[in-house]
Design a protein around this nucleic acid. Structure first.
Lengths: 199, 199
DNA sequence: GTCTATATCCAGATAGAC
DNA sequence: GTCTATCTGGATATAGAC
């Protein structure tokens, strides 16, 4: 039994090690304050490998960015598939984001706490990426079917997700001290009161 | 008359030129992508002067940070003095922020769009600075006097200001194409419905 | 494909004339 | 106080052995 526990020396693939090391360091210190050498040391990889796999520091950041936005996109897709009404979908997305903030802090921080334009060229802004576009689309449907108040879509979208995003940022900044899921029900209550059309 | 128009060759004081040049460049390209030499060129000042006045690049950023947060603090104070109820104060702050986003874009961008911890040491986080603390205090008062729903203060604060901050960020990112004040009334309507306690 | 050692470049900072 | 010219460190990136 003990050797079972110690068993998994299945080493993570090398590019995965690089990405996770980079994610941790970027979130901790900020992209520009992290040198390739630090990534190299933490990932237990040589500089040459980093250049071979990603072509350089910015390549690592780009790969990370795409990977994480892709994960987030899948999360949104799953929520959409699992829930019927726009409101249920919005609530489930917020719930998932709150849960992820606790369990996958750095991933959430990388999405919501970094100014990607400062170090990534070419990639679209996060708020223009697939998952965020889908979130706005859900809100649009909610407006069209009469579930949400008939106001400007930007206003409704910001009203639905703005408070949640703000709480995520405050939690990441260490201002909010308790896990976000504890606040979920209360927050959904105020959002709902703000945007759900009352017959 | 024409020479009156052309008159003001009163040169801005040198440290003011440095700060405005730095603000523009930092917002445009990000702190780490701006070199002192660029600031120097745009401000029409020598590098030596920058070091004399601010002690270096980070000194410039710190002075800028303090200055802008101070301005924002005065704005919040003025609003508090001019309006009686917590809700009126919150609405007025959002109104001012929306207006400033159009008329003083870079100032707002510097506050809401930069990760200051990545380049400023020692200074408190923006969300821990005086103006933001006062905004939370207003919300607290609103809860205590029964104007706002009796939920966790973080939830209420985020519900009040989160949507507005989100819209500011989307506007700064170029996603929202029309001036924010046009959305103000609608946004205040959803916020109000979300957090104001209905007798 | 992976590594080490090295080259190149440039930003931040300084020295010292004026 | 302001300037120019210069120094220095460190980061990215490369070359070439294994």
């Amino acid at each position: 039994m003990p050797y079972l526990k110690k068993c998994p020396p299945v080493p993570e693939p090398i590019d995965c090690r690089i990405l996770t090391a980079a994610l941790d360091l970027f979130v901790e210190n900020g992209y520009h304050n992290v040198s390739i050498h630090e990534v190299q040391k933490r990932a237990q990889v040589s500089i040459g490998s980093i250049y071979n796999h990603f072509g350089g520091k910015e390549g690592v950041a780009q790969a990370l960015y795409k990977h994480i936005l892709n994960e987030m996109d899948e999360l949104v897709d799953a929520v959409i598939a699992a829930h019927a009404s726009p409101w249920q979908q919005c609530a489930a997305i917020i719930s998932e984001l709150f849960a992820h903030t606790e369990t996958h802090r750095n991933i959430i921080a990388f999405v919501f706490h970094a100014k990607h334009t400062e170090f990534i060229s070419q990639e679209p802004l996060a708020c223009n990426s697939a998952p965020f576009t889908k979130m706005r689309h859900i809100v649009l449907q909610g407006i069209e079917c009469g579930d949400f108040v008939a106001l400007d879509p930007w206003v409704v979208t910001s009203s639905v997700f703005g408070g949640a995003i703000r709480m995520i940022q405050l939690r990441l900044d260490g201002m909010i001290e308790r896990p976000l899921p504890e606040y979920e029900a209360m927050l959904l209550q105020t959002i709902r009161a703000g945007v759900i059309r009352t017959a």
